[in-house]
Amino acid sequence: MAVGQINWFKFSSPATFYPLAGKLIPYFTALAVVLTVVGLYLGFFVAPTDYKQGEGYRIIFIHVPAAWMSMLIYIVMAAYAGMGLVFNTRLSSLMASALAPTGALFTFLALWTGALWGKPMWGAWWVWDARLTSELILLFLYIGFMSLKAAIDDPRRAAPASGLLAIIGVINVPIIYKSVEWWNTLHQGATIKSSGTSMETTMLTAMLVMTFAMWMYTVAVVLTRVRCEILEAERDTEWVAAELSKSS
């Protein structure tokens, strides 16, 4: 079988992943720019006014994609951390630490846009309901992961310690996701459900395009960051010396 012949572990080596990441970054950057322009145009100019919230609802095109990405990135980060622990692959923990700042950024964005949205609609910047609180805990998990990793000098000990924290924290993601179902909250329930979507189609399209835009941005930025992480982690190797002398 052809698929069986591909050596999937080839790119788990930092030395082979580094040039591959470099080649992929421009494509993801271009996709991110195009999708952001299309998504924002659809969201701000094409999507209709909401019957209840007027124009104010349009912050949803930033808020919801950012909140989705904050949860998705955490799961991916925890998966990389888990792979690092199980297979002892060097790249995995580098990917996990490259993902964390972007995840924290999106969590912060979700909380911030949520506060800006909450004040005019609900009448409060912040309420300690289950959805808002669990999302805040997600921000603390990202910050805790980054701090723990930075606090331990030896990377061979920092990676498993922070990786374990990332894996334990993954329990928070389903809690965030289901919080509006399990408890009564000020935050409204899910718009997109298995039983159907209670949103006009153009609005939904704009929201999904923005989600893909943020996704592509995440890939581009994380690949850029992981290349720095790789160079730093492998700085004593010959290939890094050759790479650096090539580019200077």
């Binding site: 006014t49 909401d50 019957y51 919230q53 609900w122 409060a124 309420v127 006009e200």
Partner: peptide, 18 residues
């Protein structure tokens, strides 16, 4: 002492709502 509004998860144009 404080009243907050809770909105639902439905988003649609005013014409559809009407």
């Amino acid at each position: 002492d404080e009243v907050l509004a809770k909105h639902d998860e439905t988003y649609m144009p005013p014409e559809v709502a009407k």
